[in-house]
Amino acid sequence: MFGWLFDPAHWSGTTGIPVRLLEHLGYTLLTLLIAALIAIPLGAFVGHTGKGGFVIVGLSNALRALPTTAVLILVVLWAGLGDFPVYVALVLLAIPPIMAGTYAGVRAVDPVTVDAARGVGMRESGVLLQVEIPNALPLIYGGFRGAALQVVATATIAAYTGAGGLGRLVFDGLALQDFGQMLAGAVLVALLAVLVDLGFAGLQRLTVSPGLRPVGTGGKR
């Protein structure tokens, strides 16, 4: 069953597993970067001002209902084959969870803390950047890591329109009725998802203040 996956012949060359893995990781990381650059400022701003929350929630829900396959195909039909349609489809997929997480995170900061931030003389930018966002980080990471899992899994579909990534193994295997190759694709995607999540979990540990960890596990030495 796992013969295909462990065949050394499949681990080299321009269509080998390492290349596919890197392509897949590339789609994932660039998608997340673009999506975060759009979704975090939007979610944070709306969360901070408290105005337009229904727009964020509505937009998130509408985008969630959008089938990624259809978006991918539509952009391919309009703009032609290549990586561009893949990024459009995946960024639209990644925006809702990140935006919702950021919005919820900023809204969830204790109003007493925010009141204190203004009371000690922080300007609005300081309140947002020095207090609200650092305190919202756990929920922002929650949304971001959720998006990362979805993007890793869904980037597989990119191969349907001829793009690269681990989806190639699944679709090529399907065309050849090669179950071993399909299974290899599935296993590698799941593995990559776990690794990516671990990576972001590490980043979260490094960047979130120990003061925000649940009481009991917090930095008492």
């Binding site: 803390t113 980080l137 003061g211």
Partner: peptide, 8 residues
């Protein structure tokens, strides 16, 4: 409730 910054 003091309103301390929990992350600092």
């Amino acid at each position: 409730q003091a309103g301390l910054f929990p992350h600092r």
